Simulated assay, not measured.
Amino acid sequence: MPNQYKPTPPLDEIAPHILCLWKACQNDRQIVRTLWEKHIDTERYGIGLTKFREIRESMGLQCTRQQGHTIESIHEAMIDLRQMYPKAGIREVISLLFHEKNISISRTVVSSYFAIFKPELVHECKAQCLKRRRFWAAGVNDLFAVNQHDKWLRFGLGLHTGIEPFSGRIMWICVWHSNRNPQLILSYYLDTIEELGHMLLITQSDLGTENFGIANAQTLLCFETVLDHSVNEGLYDVGNTLQNMVFCWVFIPWLQRELDAYRDRVNNTAKRCDRNKILPHGVPSLIYDSPQDFNALDFKVSHLVTLDVARHLMCSRLL
C-alpha cells in the first residue's frame, strides 16, 4: 500500500465511496487501493492504510474481528431472520446479517450455529441436486433480461424484474397491482436507464405483450442514438374489491421496500465461486460499474438525448 505524506481528502468527499465499497464487502486494502485509483486527486491528497482504518472506525464501520460475534450473540438476530428467510443457507445468512443487521461475522460461526440449531438444513444442502445450464453474454450492458413473476397474481400483486446477466446485477425488481401493463413495464425500464445515464445494447424477454413497450423503446432509442415467500392465501378475499384495494395499499409499499433491500443485498454480495462459470466472479455492482477491472467489455450507450421523446412517444402509443 503506497505511503503518503499529503493531506487526507475531505471526509465528505470520500465517505460515500467508502460506504459503497464497504457495502460491497471490500476489505481495507481493497478500499484504499480503489480510493487511490478512482476517487481521490493523488496530486493533492493521499491516504494510507492506518489513516483509513481510523476514518472507517470513526464512521462506525467495524470489521468481523472487531465485532467479535459468537453463536450466542447472533441468536436473537438469527431467530428474526429465520422467520423471513427459513431456507437461507450459510452464504445468504452471512449476507443478510451484514446488510440487514449490520453484523459482520465469519463463516465458521454461522456454520456452527447451523450445525447446532438447523442440522436438517445442513443435510438438505448436501443433497447436490443442482442442474446446470449455460448462458453467454459478451460483456456488461450487452443485454438486459426482463420477465414477470406470476405467483402473487392470485393476491392481486404482480412482480417484474430486469437483470444485467453478465454482472448478475438486478436493475429493477418492482411490485404493483399488475405486471401485464406494457406502459407500467416500460416505465421500469425507462426509469432505470434514466437513473444510469446510459442504455444497454439489446433487451431479451419472452414474447409476452407486456414487454413490447420495452422492445419498441429500445429499438427507437437505438435508432435515434427468489422469492420463495408468499402471502397466506386465507388472509383476504381476492374477489372482494374493497379488501383487494386495502390489501394492495398496505402491502405494496412494504413489499417494495423488501424488494429494494433484496436488490441492494444481492447486487453487493459476491456469488459463490464456480469453476464452470466463465463470466467474471465478484460483486455484481463492482462488475457492472467497473467492468475494466474484470477484463470485461462495456456496451453501454451513453447518448440519451431522445429519452424524453421515447418516453412520451411509447407511453402515448400504449394508452
Rank of each mutant, 00 (worst) to 15 (best):
P2V: 00
K6S: 05
P7R: 09
P9E: 02
D12K: 12
A24F: 00
R33E: 10
W36Y: 09
E37Q: 14
K38F: 11
K38W: 11
I40D: 10
D41I: 09
Y45T: 01
G46F: 02
G48K: 10
L49D: 00
E57D: 15
S58M: 08
G68Q: 09
T70C: 03
I71K: 15
A77N: 15
D80A: 06
D80L: 02
L81Y: 04
A88T: 05
G89C: 08
R91M: 10
E92Y: 02
S95H: 01
L96I: 08
F98P: 03
I103S: 05
I103Y: 07
T108M: 11
T108S: 11
T108F: 09
V109R: 08
V110R: 13
V110D: 08
Y113D: 09
F114W: 07
I116A: 08
L121H: 12
C125Y: 07
R132T: 01
R134Y: 13
L143Q: 12
N147G: 15
D150A: 12
K151T: 12
W152V: 06
R154W: 05
R154C: 13
G156N: 11
G156W: 10
S167T: 05
M171I: 14
M171S: 10
M171H: 02
V175K: 05
S178Q: 01
Y189D: 05
D191Y: 01
E194V: 01
L196S: 02
G208M: 03
E210M: 00
I214Q: 01
A217M: 01
L220R: 10
F223P: 00
E224V: 05
L227Y: 13
H229K: 13
Y236G: 04
T241F: 14
T241P: 12
L242C: 13
N244G: 13
V250C: 08
P253T: 03
P253R: 05
P253K: 07
A261T: 08
A261M: 13
D264P: 03
D264S: 15
N268D: 05
N268I: 04
T269P: 03
K271V: 09
N276Y: 04
N276P: 00
K277T: 09
L279R: 12
V283Y: 02
I287W: 15
P291I: 12
P291D: 07
Q292I: 03
Q292K: 09
N295A: 06
L304R: 00
T306F: 00
L307T: 06
R311E: 04
H312P: 00
L313M: 12
M314F: 00
C315K: 11
R317N: 11
L319W: 06
